[in-house]
């Protein structure tokens, strides 16, 4: 545990020290052109923080559901030897409910990335 604490402190210290070394050795001559946002040689147009595809958001929500499922399964995985027959059937029921949920998600088209369905 003690070594773990040391490691925990040592890693950020090393990272900050490396950054400090870089600041110490490197020259710093900023000018206006150098500090502009990179955009393939153009002056930047429009805001960078703009609208993005809803699919990324949808993936986030799906991840939340499935990761929670994995989280709930972890205690069951380590206690497979101590849960009785009824505990096992409850685990199986949980998994089957999840499968049904997944089939619903799949057939509702939430996992479809291209817009083929909407066009046809």
């Amino acid at each position: 545990m003690n070594s773990f604490l040391f490691y925990f402190i040592l890693v950020p210290v090393i990272v900050i020290a490396l950054l400090g070394l870089n600041l110490f050795f490197a020259q710093s001559k900023p000018n206006e052109e150098k500090l502009t946002t990179f955009e393939c040689g153009f002056s930047p147009v429009e805001q960078a923080r703009q609208k993005f595809s809803i699919h990324f958001y949808l993936v986030g929500i799906l991840f939340l559901v499935f990761d929670l499922e994995v989280l709930l399964l972890f205690p069951a995985a380590v206690s497979m030897n101590s849960i009785s027959q009824s505990g096992f059937w409850i685990l199986l029921f949980f998994l089957i409910v999840l499968t049904v949920g997944f089939i619903y998600e799949y057939s509702s088209g939430a996992l479809n990335y291209t817009n083929k369905d909407k066009e046809s």
Binding site: E39, R49, F52, F56, V59, F63, A77
Partner: peptide, 28 residues
């Protein structure tokens, strides 16, 4: 605050969290 960085990080995040689900389930 750069368009390439923004799109790149969106893609990276979506990819990371999607594969995290399979990753976690396989460890399980």
């Amino acid at each position: 605050n750069n368009k390439y960085s923004f799109i790149g990080s969106l893609r990276a995040t979506a990819q990371l969290i999607s594969y995290e689900v399979v990753f976690g389930l396989i460890i399980l």
